[in-house]
Write a protein that binds this DNA or RNA. Structure first.
Lengths: 109, 109
DNA sequence: GCCAATATATAGATTGACTATGGATAGATT
DNA sequence: AATCTATCCATAGTCAATCTATATATTGGC
């Protein structure tokens, strides 16, 4: 049996970066935001999220800062960098090109 | 450096199955068809294609038959099975749900 | 004779997302 | 006080899918 993924592989980084264009957020909040905006269709598991955030940090696309949440918890807030914004733009247009291409293949006749 | 995929991962089986709804085809022809219909955006590498076809055979979603091509070469023609047609339907609707969800996340504000 | 295009296939590497686990704290409930 | 739920971070190990690279073989054109 094929394991049903909670995400379309290859789209996670883009979703995270996009989420951070709205406001800096901690990891848990990013996952919540994606889940909520997608009406529970997209669920980002912790084992996908945190490695992804490490990747993004390493690439310099986000930066992180420890802060207190409104509820007084310690959390790591991620902010989009200019390089991250540029990267997001590229991923978005690449994604649109791909989706359009897939659409053409899926068209009838 | 991130390797740029020629496909949106997770969509290959769907693309192959869809291609076979038009007519039975050999592997090389499937790749050609996807490439052409997508205006060269989607390129299915051999190392992706043939393993994918093996998976589909194993799942019973396609069946294969050795034949001669129009140009007199020996080639393996793949045909969609009823189970494959059903599978394609499920993958298509799942895909649409995902794309719609991603679209919501990518919307501004 | 040689080369490009057609045709199949596997081995091995890489990537990305998953499961499973470990930790810690706040706030509410019992 | 103890326990539970939700919030929060992170890593190790696994698995599946795609990629690169390679091997083989045939047809047709130059």
């Amino acid at each position: 049996m094929a394991k049903k993924s909670e995400l379309l592989p290859g789209t996670l980084d883009m979703l995270i970066l996009k989420t951070l264009t709205r406001a800096p957020l901690h990891g848990y909040g990013i996952a919540q935001s994606i889940k909520r905006l997608s009406d529970d269709v997209l669920t980002v598991e912790e084992g996908s999220l945190y490695p992804a955030l490490q990747r993004l940090l390493l690439q310099g696309w986000v930066k992180a800062e420890w802060k207190k949440t409104e509820t007084n918890r310690r959390a790591r807030y991620y902010t989009l960098t200019p390089a991250g914004r540029k990267q997001l733009g590229e991923e978005l247009s690449q994604f649109e090109v791909m989706i359009a291409a897939i659409g053409r293949v899926l068209q009838d006749a």
